[in-house]
Amino acid sequence: MRKVISFMMLSAALAACTQEKQNEISRSIQNWTGTDGVLDVYAGDTLVKRFIKIDKLSTAQGTDDSKPRPYRYGYGVVDENQNFKVDDGEKKVYFEFSDYSTSYVFYENYKN
């Protein structure tokens, strides 16, 4: 019974949160449990780069003002042959991309 009451209280607290706060809580749980993210970068309709094995994408923050900057960054393996697997010679790299110039899709790897 105690678990049911605790769950109900947690559910009520989450329901009272704003959508942004719920997303933040979800991301923190996901960061803790880990993900196998994929980032596809497009130039028009053409897939030009794929990164795999990404834990998370982060929004850059200003050093002095802590305001969000218009780019995202992360770490992932460059999937040169775009087969969703880490092959020989494919390395983990740091990457960043601008909100202004890049079309991208970030999703969980469902291929593995």
Rank of each mutant, 00 (worst) to 15 (best):
T33A: 07
G34Y: 06
G34S: 05
G34T: 00
T35E: 02
T35K: 04
D36A: 12
D36P: 07
D36H: 11
D36C: 06
D36E: 09
G37R: 09
G37Q: 12
G37V: 07
V38H: 06
V38S: 03
V38L: 10
V38G: 03
L39R: 01
L39K: 04
D40A: 05
D40Q: 01
D40G: 06
V41L: 14
V41T: 03
V41Y: 06
V41C: 07
V41A: 04
V41H: 05
Y42M: 02
Y42W: 06
Y42E: 10
Y42G: 04
Y42I: 01
Y42S: 00
A43I: 01
G44S: 09
G44V: 02
G44Y: 10
G44C: 00
D45Y: 02
D45L: 03
D45C: 03
D45I: 00
D45F: 07
T46L: 07
T46Y: 04
L47A: 01
L47T: 02
L47G: 05
L47S: 03
L47I: 00
L47V: 00
V48E: 09
V48I: 06
K49M: 14
K49C: 12
K49S: 09
K49E: 14
K49D: 08
R50N: 01
R50E: 01
R50Q: 08
R50S: 01
R50C: 00
R50A: 10
F51Y: 09
F51A: 02
I52A: 09
K53H: 08
K53C: 06
K53T: 02
K53R: 05
I54E: 01
I54C: 03
I54A: 08
I54M: 05
I54S: 05
D55C: 12
D55M: 10
D55Y: 14
D55S: 15
K56H: 01
K56C: 07
K56N: 06
K56Y: 09
L57D: 03
L57N: 04
S58K: 10
S58I: 00
S58M: 04
T59N: 12
T59A: 15
T59I: 12
T59M: 13
T59S: 14
A60I: 04
A60V: 03
Q61H: 15
Q61W: 13
Q61F: 15
G62A: 14
G62K: 12
G62R: 09
G62P: 07
G62I: 12
T63C: 09
T63N: 11
T63W: 14
T63E: 13
D64I: 08
D64F: 12
D65F: 11
D65E: 08
D65S: 05
D65K: 09
D65I: 13
S66C: 02
S66N: 05
S66K: 12
K67Q: 06
K67T: 02
K67A: 11
K67L: 15
K67F: 10
K67V: 10
P68C: 12
P68T: 11
P68W: 13
P68M: 07
P68G: 13
P68E: 15
R69D: 11
R69W: 11
P70T: 00
P70R: 03
Y71R: 04
Y71K: 04
R72Q: 14
R72N: 13
Y73S: 06
Y73D: 13
Y73T: 13
Y73N: 11
Y73V: 10
